[in-house]
Design a protein around this nucleic acid. Structure first.
Lengths: 315, 315
DNA sequence: TTGTATGCGTTATCAA
DNA sequence: TTGATAACGCATACAA
């Protein structure tokens, strides 16, 4: 495997200095059309293209953005990743996907991100503890951070997330208008701020409608299986007459599991016997997997709130 | 934002030469414990860590692998991405996720990959045309390429894919034993080699069992919606008595759409009235989303074939 | 407009 | 073991 051609070699071939070669590849540089043509011609012959690595070292910008993900179980990630990569690439930025799982030291990963000189770090669905980010080793020269699809409690770290309060207000309004009066809520992991927010607002809006008490079904994790188990536990422990009539699940993957069990093991019609609501805009029945998340985003304070099309009721 | 500390600054602080500083961070370098301690101490004070960008320029290896993806609609991608990133990171490699969509020039993306000096390029579910790869601009110094989750027709480009022949042989054996005799097959895109392979082997193995003629349902794309439409078209055009009794779908996302329509619009019990088989090991009813793809992989010739746990019948 | 010198932060090689 | 010189390929600042 031959080596890549360098600017120096190009200079000899084109009969100019290597700095002129660079200029030919620098938009807006002052160079004659004649010499640019000579250089481009030589580039064609030598199959030259600038070495982006060397450029990064010299300019101190890599045009690479690190995206940290710790939960690949949620299919919601995929369409967002699609958008994210597309938008970043449109800006000339590349996406470095970093898997932050249990086996991986978070601080170490962040230090590595600093060493790599990423232009930015995006925490996608992951909120580090403040102490982790306070590690002094992350101090100088560490790339700016952003939190995506989760609220950020960390001062100075902007977050892009859906407006849970608004979304749940709309959901409860809709359900109330449809005549539902006995709401339930299925939680995934009880520790997450997003989760707490959704449950909190859900109960709150029902209370404003005069409906007190939201039955809580607790799933172990965010998975269809956990959702199915939680639904099974509730349905088998609760006689039909005293059951909820609408179940709001913290996200779509839980809703999928719950719907499956309700239909197959308990013979419930959805939504005739039990309405089920999800959150994430995934898998609507008979539909494809839409990728129109984060469609509208407006700026508020120094945080950005993208609101997506959530909480559609299912039949 | 202060700048990162460099080896030169470290040298002054520790009272050694900057090369000794480097050695302290080079595994297996010859250096006294005494001077290493001095350096590490200074590193603690100055919060130093080696600049990986500069290292890459000097060593000509980036420890970064580009992964090209063009189809984010298939949820199958996500667990594989999880595995891929985890395994690569375990080897000290970072994953650069590159979105190859319709708006993006493939050749340009590949050239960019060359400029970035990635250690390798993985075509995940994407097979470029041979002429694209034959572009001479991709010549010298271009990273080695691999095709993942699709067969590669390109000479010299190894592929990791499931063994369709073996998988479909097992599927047909299983279905035959269960008593099914009127098979159907739902295709997604008819142009793909993987698709053709699966359909071909499916029909082949049925023929060996003495069952001629596999009904073909053609979906427009790989999406639940397309699968639903194809199923609807078939079921509404075919009277119950002459319908197939088992439908093999080219992948799980098609199967999801088909099952949904069969159950809801035609009142079919699955698998009592119609058995449905998918491919990808996604969404099994009531289960979570398993990530045990590509579990076993053995080497054969210069290609690698990973066989995953596919084709489970659904109840 | 073009050429020169110098810097980016590290690694490789050789001499001490 | 340690220090010094050169090289990696490009960008910036300055001079011609």
């Amino acid at each position: 495997m031959r080596k890549r051609a360098t600017a120096k070699e190009m200079a000899e071939a084109a009969g100019v200095s290597k700095w002129t070669v660079i200029r030919a590849f620098t938009p807006g540089a002052s160079i004659t059309d004649a010499s640019r043509q000579k250089v481009l011609q030589a580039a064609e012959a030598l199959n030259y293209s600038p070495n982006l690595l060397a450029r990064s070292l010299a300019t101190n910008t890599t045009h690479q953005v690190a995206v940290f993900v710790d939960d690949f179980a949620n299919p919601h990630k995929l369409p967002v990743l699609e958008m994210l990569t597309e938008r970043l690439q449109a800006e000339g930025l590349l996406t470095v996907l970093i898997n932050i799982n249990r086996h991986f030291d978070h601080v170490h990963a962040l230090i590595n991100a600093g060493q790599r000189q990423f232009d930015a770090v995006i925490l996608f669905g992951t909120a580090f503890r403040e102490e982790t980010l306070g590690d002094r080793r992350l101090g100088p020269g560490f790339p700016p951070m952003f939190v995506l699809a989760r609220d950020s409690q960390i001062p100075g770290v902007p977050a892009i997330a859906c407006d849970a309060e608004f979304a749940l207000s709309e959901i409860v309004d809709y359900l109330f208008d449809k005549g539902y009066r006995r709401p339930g809520f299925m939680t995934g992991a009880r520790t997450l701020s997003t989760a707490l927010g959704r449950r909190h607002h859900y109960a709150n809006f029902w209370r404003r409608k005069g409906v007190e008490g939201v039955a809580e079904l607790a799933a172990e994790r965010y998975s269809a299986q956990a959702g199915a188990e939680a639904a099974r536990a509730y349905l088998s422990a609760t006689p039909p007459v005293s059951r909820i009539d609408v179940l709001m699940c913290e996200n779509d993957i839980l809703a999928l599991g719950a719907m499956d069990i309700a239909r197959s093991e308990f013979g419930l019609g959805i939504p005739q016997d039990l309405a089920v609501v999800g959150f994430d805009n995934r898998t609507r029945r008979g539909s494809g997997l839409p990728t129109d998340q984060l469609r509208t985003a407006h700026r508020r304070d120094d945080k950005r709130h993208g609101r997506n099309d959530n909480g559609q009721a299912r039949r």
